[in-house]
Design a protein around this nucleic acid. Structure first.
Lengths: 335, 335
DNA sequence: CTGAAAGCGCTAACAG
DNA sequence: CTGTTAGCGCTTTCAG
């Protein structure tokens, strides 16, 4: 293992000078710097980030905290895309990523403790129960935190334009002649509130009266709750002509349930999802949905987190990322 | 920030004793240990892993190297599942995960250099062009490496039982009365060879003569090559009664292509995939496929890697993980 | 412009 | 059983 001392020796200078040359300090003559860089390369010198971190107190590591209820973990379709964005942006800026967990090696520890052990510079939080005390503890700590899909006065956050998403989707359905629209919605968090607000707003603008039974409570990305919600609708006297589901997977489970009851989609009933994941393109009929710009969300989260780290500013920002209507074949004009 | 010195002072002992107590060394009296543990907790002491790493030369970090050609990155359906397994197992054993990349912060560096900078203890490699010089360099280094889906004399590896997978799938089709079976296969790596071997073996055992035109070259998880391969089949004088695709996504693209040409699946032609990802269950007809135990693969890779780290043994092992036939509705008995 | 020296927090002989 | 001491590799004053 080659250290700066080896390089220093080879150059006939001190380790301090080598360190400076390697880190582009201005107070090194061009000549010395060049020599040092050359020798360092020659000797195959690789800086030891652990050692550097110890003296600078900066690890160039950002933590990612993600815990989902459905235990799909990293395979979670939404999260994996966001993560990819976080990673790309972090990499570009010279940061590595560390997953934050409780319970490392059989030792229970809080998320904050994990961060402190590793001396993580900042954290991106997503898809979690934000109310959990351990998460709050982390958000209240000195570590820069960026949340995804969470609303709070004290935290920087990145979100999709959920309001506009459902608003546009609903408008689209109405433009197809649908008036009797049901919205099967996910569990009650800020994101969901925004979506419901979008739903109501669209109805209102089009002069369609809203009533509570247009909303059916369900959950995100879980099979059974969406099947059940669909059955609730099927059990009613009068069927809606269109149904919005909390997400694309839910929409597909919904479609399968509707079909099992002898209904055709979209001929008998139109269906739309939310998220715009690949699977929506593969099923038939191709799903009408709202595409979230997940990659952008991840990148923005990463960027914001790093900015907070580097400027050491405590200011928090809320960034809304645009969404896109993807008209598919699971919806059609009402006859 | 509380250090062992603070704890030592509070306990009226030396930092060395604190360190020993904290690390469960035997040569500390039960009484002192207890006192130290209590004080440490009281003061909110959290060990600094950077510092520890510097003196022990062990980071408790394992690297994950993954680079896919299709740029789906972490969202890659197969990889994300494997990664989840790697992560779970690593966590359980007290290790964190770091993604290895070239090009950190605009600085080009080899994978090996990235590992060396971070002083990664070991690496799991998956879904990569194993022939690339930079990957070879890493595999030839002193760092413990475990590969997934790669065959080499000098490297520990985890693989699915690819041979058996296609073997059983083919047997299953034959048992349904199919004799005219085509195999659209992915790009030519060891995994693919094994699968083709399984295909041939099954035919042979059932006395069905093999001919080269039963094999159609395509690619894994890429849309166009599989559409093209399907068109090649469709262009022939005589259609097969069943087609095997390289993976589930490819199978779905295949089905869509067949349908676009007026064929019904499975009535006119049976189709099977490989991988057993969730999407196969969601499309209709539900896909007949081989389920790879991805989670297990990840866990095994992680485990093996950690074992290599901890025993410092250079021995390499090859572990084959079993697969499972999932009969779906995309295949049916030949009429 | 260059270097000596202290220190980041922890571990690991080695003495006592 | 406990403490002293010397690093691990790098950065950072502060002199020169």
């Amino acid at each position: 293992m080659v250290t700066i001392y080896d390089v220093a020796q080879a150059c006939g200078c001190s380790s301090a000078t080598v360190s400076k040359a390697l880190n582009n300090y201005p107070d090194v003559s061009a000549k010395t710097r060049e020599k040092i860089l050359k020798k360092a390369k020659e000797l195959g010198f690789v800086p030891n980030l652990q050692a550097r971190a110890l003296s600078t107190n900066k690890t160039w590591n950002i933590g990612v905290l993600f815990e989902d209820k459905s235990h799909s973990g990293l395979t979670h379709y939404f999260f994996s895309q966001v993560l990819q964005g976080v990673k790309e942006q972090a990499e570009e800026m010279g940061y590595d990523i560390t997953f934050i967990s409780k319970n490392l090696g059989g030792v229970e520890m809080s998320y904050l403790e994990h961060c402190n052990r590793r001396k993580i510079d900042g954290v991106v939080i997503a898809c979690i129960e934000f109310d959990e005390p351990m998460v709050q503890e982390l958000m209240d700590s000195d570590i820069p935190v960026v949340a995804i899909d969470y609303y709070s006065e004290h935290i920087s956050a990145i979100m999709s334009d959920n309001f506009r998403g459902v608003y546009e989707l609903t408008k689209y359905l109405i433009s197809l002649g649908h008036k009797d629209i049901n919205y099967v919605f996910g569990h009650e968090v800020y994101v969901t509130e925004e979506r419901i607000r979008g739903f109501k707003k669209a109805l209102e603008e089009e002069g369609i009266p809203f009533s509570d039974d247009m909303l059916i409570k369900s959950k995100y990305s879980e099979k059974q709750p969406n099947i059940d919600a669909t059955k609730v609708i099927l059990g009613r006297d009068k069927l809606p002509s269109a149904i919005l589901y909390p997400d694309d997977y839910s929409a597909i489970w919904g479609i399968n349930t509707l079909r099992a009851h002898g209904l055709r989609v979209p001929e008998d009933i139109s269906v739309a999802g939310f998220d715009g994941v690949e699977i929506g393109e593969l099923v038939s009929p191709r799903l009408t949905t709202i595409k979230q710009n997940t990659s952008r969300m991840g990148k923005q989260a990463s960027l914001k987190c790093i900015q907070m780290i580097e400027s050491k500013s405590d200011d928090f920002t809320r960034i809304t990322v645009g969404v896109e209507l993807i008209p598919g074949k699971s919806t059609m004009a009402k006859k």
